[in-house]
Design a protein around this nucleic acid. Structure first.
Length: 420
RNA sequence: GUGAGCGUAGUUCAGUUGGUUAGAACAUCAGAUUGUGGCUCUGAGGGUCGGGGGUUCGAAUCCCCUCGCUCACCCCA
């Protein structure tokens, strides 16, 4: 019986891991530049947190969660999204009382029981950032800039920033009624999916992929036009600031996010290099969320971004993520005593932070040379009978094949000099 | 949950109207005179043709079922 990884999961193999290291480094760099602090929360939480935070009626909670009962009979869920757990942690650790303002980021894996397809997995990795405690329109802008900076540093060029506002909850309720009144006239022309959505999730009809649905909704009342003065003004400030910073964006009235907690600004980064799942990141404001989770009324905004999708988009853009690490030197020992001596020297080099390798398969000289070549090491250090006698090995530069004798005691020094 | 496409060595694929021991390239390993990699040459290992059942004298090839992968819908990063 051969074991296979669960559907929708992936093994990140040594040949690919450097991409992840690179992206994670970029995220940490950019987070530092924007003064965000890292937060890590558990892999699973009480199921109730997501029901309350994300919304019982959302697809995520309704049918995509990995929920299980633990040994004490409590219902637990592998986190399907990152914001609710971070808010829980803020409240639980009294962070909001300690300080009214926080800028946090995280890199974590997430779990949703969906049917996998291009750019969509059951376990995926997300990088996210949250700004808690300010309702300034600058927070919205700051998050957009931060995500943009990460994408830029990963060589992603061809993407579009879509932005919209879904207003306050009561404004949204009002708009849904307006939209329903409008769509009622076309109800028979809508796709089957959208007919169903008419009752369950009217807003989503706007981002239906059905051609006919889109034609109908093209002329539907726009949410932006129905918002109250305060929300409108706020949205305009965000837009003006983006203009001021010369950030290209597109107002997209179809952009209605799927999670219940969003308010006012919503945005999404859409890549032209991806398949059907083309969002590399998205987010928005959630001014009611903390209160909803039992904290005191505190505004917030954030975004999440899929690292797998960033990698796919970056590679489509020809980005290479730097290089794979390789040893600087490979020891070639021609007998047991030489091996013992080599290992002793190599141990010193490693202590001095010089990446070193030696054959552990007792291979022939030739095979060891081949192995060294395959690894792409800069140097090979050959130790055999002659070298043991002279207390000096043969240091060979694999690039130009030059080779000369270097005393055992001077090897580290020589290499450190080269490494400068 | 719905729909479509695809499953032959580690990888990319070939495999003639069903016909004997299923092939190639690349990769791996080992050699090409005594202690030197890449290039070249030679050789070796590696496949229950996704799995099960059926049709047939005979199935990688035809039929059914099943599993897996991929893409799309739904939804989302």
């Amino acid at each position: 019986m051969n074991f296979k990884k669960p559907k929708g999961t992936k093994d990140i193999l040594p040949k690919d891991i450097y991409k992840w290291h690179y992206i994670e480094r970029i995220i940490r760099e950019v987070s530092a530049v924007f003064n965000f602090s890292e937060i890590r929360t558990p892999t699973f939480e009480n199921t109730e947190l997501f029901k309350r935070g994300v919304g019982n009626d959302t697809d995520i909670v309704g049918k995509e969660m990995y929920t299980f009962e633990d040994k004490s009979g409590d219902s637990m869920t592998l986190k399907p999204e990152g914001t609710a757990p971070v808010m829980r942690a803020l409240i639980e650790n009294s962070m909001i009382n300690e300080s009214p303002f926080h800028k946090l980021f995280y890199i974590t894996n997430m779990f949703r029981h969906e049917k996998p397809q291009a750019g969509r997995f059951r376990e995926h990795t997300q990088f996210g950032a949250e700004i808690i405690g300010s309702n300034s329109f600058y927070t919205d802008v700051e998050l957009i800039l931060m995500a943009k900076e990460v994408y830029n540093r990963c060589g992603i060029e061809n993407y579009t920033i879509k932005i919209n506002s879904i207003g306050k909850p009561n404004e949204r309720k009002h708009y849904i009624n307006v939209l329903k009144d409008f769509l009622a006239n076309y109800i028979n022309d809508l796709s089957e999916d959208s007919k169903r959505r008419f009752e369950t999730n009217t807003l989503r009809i706007l981002d239906s992929k059905d051609k006919n649905d889109r034609q109908i909704t093209e002329n539907a009342p726009k949410i932006l036009d129905t918002l109250g003065e305060e929300s409108k003004l706020r949205f305009n400030k965000v837009i003006n600031e983006l203009e001021n910073l010369k950030i290209n964006y597109e107002i997209d009235f179809r952009l209605v996010r799927g999670l219940d907690y969003y308010t006012d600004t919503t945005f999404e980064f859409v890549s032209q290099s991806l398949g059907s799942q083309d969002a590399i990141g998205g987010g928005g404001r959630y001014d009611m969320l903390i209160e909803q989770l039992g904290g005191k009324e505190t505004p917030g905004a954030g975004f999440g971004s899929g690292i797998e999708r960033i990698i796919i988009a970056a590679e489509k853009n020809g980005f290479t993520f730097g290089k794979i690490n390789k040893p600087l030197i490979y020891f070639i020992a021609l007998n047991d005593i030489a091996r013992m001596k080599s290992y002793e020297i190599m141990n010193e080099l490693r202590a001095k932070n010089i990446p070193s390798e030696i054959d552990l398969l007792n291979r022939s000289f030739k095979a060891q040379m081949r192995d060294a070549n395959r690894l792409g090491v800069q140097f090979v250090y050959i130790v055999g009978d002659d070298e043991l006698e002279k207390n000096a090995g043969q240091l060979k530069n694999m690039e130009n094949s030059s080779q000369y004798s270097v005393p055992f005691s001077e090897l580290a020094e020589k290499l450190l000099e080269f490494n400068k």
